[in-house]
Design a protein around this nucleic acid. Structure first.
Length: 313
DNA sequence: AAGAATCGCAACCGCGAGACA
DNA sequence: ATGTCTCGCGGTTGCGATTCT
């Protein structure tokens, strides 16, 4: 059997373990996770190694950066379209892992549930968190649809040590939205350039690197007509819907696909410019396009599927 | 200042799919 | 065709940090 030489280590990773894992990936690539243990490099399961790499050590991750408004919106829209396919949704959010998306969604669902509960039982709104929840709703309502320096609760000011690389001040300065879905980088056929898109130089910031500044596509008609945030709209709509609590259950994408057209269009697929290793010819075409992917795990695109055409939505 | 409630994140677990012998 | 192994995904849990009374 694979292992029985020593106890399998669990729990938080040490810096030394990270180093070993990184070195292994450098040598052999992000594969053969189980060999890390069989070689005696780490007393971790291959599964654990893979998870650590994917969620924390992989290059270009936005570790410690909170979800921007647009990221939140993308998650909301894609969740309605795909259901809880976090890995798939994460491919639209550069620097985000399925775990990030999953955690974000989970937190959001809890928040919504609490807001709803407090709305249903106003007398209970004297507790501390309900105050914050109420504030969040009103804050959402005040937020412009696309440009918002300070937004949801997830955008609360924070200057923790691990957030240093993308301080809120940076986010505020950013002003407009930067987004690029990974699948577009994989399948050029899917690229669909929006003439209105605006490219901006990158800042040397993990939270903005590999992103492009583009106008975010229109969302649903409902959202278009109202100034409410998606979250607030969802809440408001839910209060009138007798089946609102179903929202908190699993979503059947097949059912939703006919009712909730995904407004996130391919157009926010834009070429990524953080091709650290890419070489271009005189016509600015990538000569060694593969070099662009060197920063990514070789398997990270394995599960990416072509996007459905908008007509299928 | 202390305690309770909540948040946010990292990591684990179980299961299914695919590869391979 | 079948069994085993590895990998990847989604759900869940645990815990430190934060916020509020």
């Amino acid at each position: 059997m694979e292992g029985r030489r020593e106890e399998i280590r669990k729990g938080p990773w040490k810096a030394e373990e990270d180093e070993v894992l990184i070195n292994h990936v450098k040598k052999y690539g992000p594969r053969d996770w189980s060999s890390i243990r069989s070689k005696g490099l780490l007393q971790r399961t291959g599964k654990s190694c893979r998870l650590r790499w994917v969620n924390k050590l992989r290059p270009n991750l936005k570790n410690g950066c909170k979800f921007s408004l647009e990221e939140e919106r993308v998650v909301i829209e894609l969740q309605a379209q795909f259901g809880n396919k976090w890995a798939r949704i994460a491919t639209y959010l550069p620097g985000r892992t399925d775990n990030d998306v999953k955690n974000f969604w989970s937190s959001r669902q809890k928040r919504l549930a609490r807001i709803l509960q407090n709305s249903a039982t106003p007398s209970s709104s004297s507790n501390s968190k309900s105050h914050r929840a109420t504030w969040e709703v009103s804050t959402f309502n005040d937020v412009p649809t696309l440009l918002a320096p300070k937004l949801s609760s997830s955008m609360d000011e924070e200057s923790s040590s691990k957030d240093h690389s993308c301080s809120s001040s940076n986010r505020e300065k950013a002003g407009t939205i930067k987004m690029v879905p990974v699948p577009a980088l994989v399948n050029p056929k899917l690229l669909h350039f929006d003439a209105h898109s605006v490219l901006t130089p990158f800042e040397n910031n993990p939270c903005t690197d590999s992103q492009l500044q583009i106008p975010f596509p229109d969302i649903t008609q409902t959202q278009h007509d109202l100034t409410f945030s998606p979250e607030s709209q969802e809440l408001l709509a839910g209060l009138e819907d007798p089946h609102f609590f179903d929202v908190f259950g699993p979503v059947d994408a097949s059912q939703l696909s006919n009712e909730v057209p995904l407004p996130v269009e391919e157009p926010f697929l834009k070429p990524m410019r953080s091709f650290r290793n890419a070489v271009k010819d005189e016509n600015d075409n990538l000569v060694n396009p593969d070099a662009f992917f060197e920063d990514f795990p070789t398997d990270m695109f394995d599960h990416i599927e072509p996007l459905p055409s908008p007509s299928d939505w």
